[in-house]
Design a protein around this nucleic acid. Structure first.
Lengths: 204, 204
DNA sequence: GTCTATACTAGGATAGAC
DNA sequence: GTCTATCCTAGTATAGAC
C-alpha cells in the first residue's frame, strides 16, 4: 500500500464520518439551523477541512440523503429475508414503532428533510428527499403486489402516508404513544387486507 | 372618533396585514428562509416599521400560527352548520382535496410549520404549531364521538394523520393527484366506519 | 405612529500556509 | 491532504429623525 492510498483510505473514512454526522445532525437540528461547524464537530473533523470533502453545504445535505437511502436499503434487505410479504410489511411497522421516541422528538428523518428541502429551491435539492421516499414507496408497493392486492400503488401511498402522518403528529405533540397506537392500527389494517380475500376493503 | 383611535385603527390594519402576510409567506418559503423584509414587502409595509408591531421575528411566526388557528376555526364553524357529523368530516376531506395544488407545492401550512418549529427550540415556539393541530384533532374527535364510534381519539389521530401524510407525500413528490386519490380513500373509510355499525372495522 | 440608516452577528465560503 | 485566518454576505434588530 502506497502513501497515497493510505491517505485516500483515511480521507474516505473522514468523508464517511462527515456523511453519517450530517445525517444525524440534520435530523436533530434541521437543515437550516445546522452549520458546517456543527457537522464537523459531530464528525470530529476540523471545520476548515470539511470543504476538502464537500465543496458546499448542499453537498453535505445530499450526502445525508444518500445515507438515509443506504439505511433504507439495509432495512429492506433485512426484511426481504422474511418469506411472506405481509410479514415483511408488519415487521416494517414494528421497526417504525421501535423508533417511536426518536420520531416523537425529531420526526421521520427523511420526511422532515423533505419538508425543509421543499422550501430550499435554490440548490435544486428540493426534490431529492422525495426520491428517497420514492424508494420506500416502491418497495412497499412491491409487497402489496406480491400479495395479489388491487391498486398496490395506492395501498403503498396509504401505508407510507400513514407512517409520515403518525410521525408528524407524534413529533408535533411530542407523544411517542401515538406511534404505538397508530402502529397497532396499521397492523390490523394489513391483516384485514390479507384476510379480506377480495381486497375490496375500503380502508384509507 | 379621536385621532388616536383612527391611528390605532390604521395600526391594527397594518398589524393584521402583517399577520396574514406572515402566514402566507411562511407557508411558501418556510420559517427559516423567510426574512422580515419578505413579510414586510408582502404586506406592503416598510421594513423598519414592522418592528413597531412585532418586536421579533418569533412574534411574527406566532401571529402566523394564530392566523392559521383562525382559518381553522372559520372552516370548522362552516362545517358545523351541516347537521350530520359524518357529512362534516366528508366535507372536510373535500376541502383538503380542493387545496390539492397548494398542498402539492407547499404542503399543509400548519404541518410544515410544525416540522420547522420543532427544530427551532430557542424561541420556545417548538410546541406552538402542535397546539393548532390539537385544535383540529379535538374537533375531529368530537365528530367521531357524536357518531357513537369507539376510540374517537384514535380515530381522530388516524384521520388527521392520514391528511398530514398525504400532504407530505403530495408535496415531496409534487403530485396533487395523491391528494385526490387518498382523499377518496379517506371518504370510503368514513363510510365503512359509519356503515359498519359495530365500528369494529380495523382500518388504520 | 412612520420610516431611514446603520450597528451587529452568524455563518458560508475561500486563500493560502503547512 | 490538513488546518488557520479571513473575507463577505445576509439578515435581525435598534437608534433616532421626522
Amino acid at each position: 500500500m502506497t502513501d497515497s492510498t493510505r491517505a485516500s483510505a483515511r480521507g474516505a473514512g473522514k468523508r464517511r464520518r462527515l456523511a453519517a454526522a450530517a445525517a444525524a445532525v440534520l435530523h436533530r437540528q434541521g437543515a437550516e439551523r445546522t452549520t458546517i461547524a456543527d457537522i464537523a464537530a459531530a464528525a470530529d473533523v476540523p471545520v476548515g477541512n470539511v470543504y476538502y470533502y464537500f465543496k458546499t453545504k448542499d453537498e453535505l445535505v445530499q450526502a445525508a440523503l444518500a445515507e438515509h437511502a443506504g439505511n433504507l436499503a439495509e432495512l429492506t434487505g433485512e426484511l426481504g429475508k422474511l418469506p411472506d410479504p405481509l410479514r415483511r410489511l408488519k415487521a416494517l411497522v414494528e421497526a417504525w414503532v421501535a423508533q417511536r421516541d426518536v420520531a416523537a422528538r425529531y420526526g421521520c428523518p427523511t420526511g422532515t428533510l423533505a419538508v425543509e428541502l421543499d422550501k430550499r429551491a435554490e440548490g435544486g435539492l428540493d426534490l431529492e428527499a422525495g426520491r428517497v421516499i420514492r424508494l420506500l414507496l416502491d418497495w412497499v408497493e412491491h409487497q402489496f403486489r406480491d400479495l395479489g392486492l388491487p391498486d398496490p400503488e395506492d395501498l403503498a401511498l396509504t401505508f407510507v402516508g400513514a407512517y409520515q402522518g403518525m410521525s408528524l403528529l407524534a413529533n408535533a405533540l411530542r407523544d411517542p404513544e401515538i406511534m404505538t397506537r397508530q402502529g397497532a392500527r396499521l397492523t390490523r389494517w394489513l391483516d384485514s387486507l390479507d384476510g379480506g380475500g377480495t381486497g375490496a376493503r375500503p380502508a384509507p
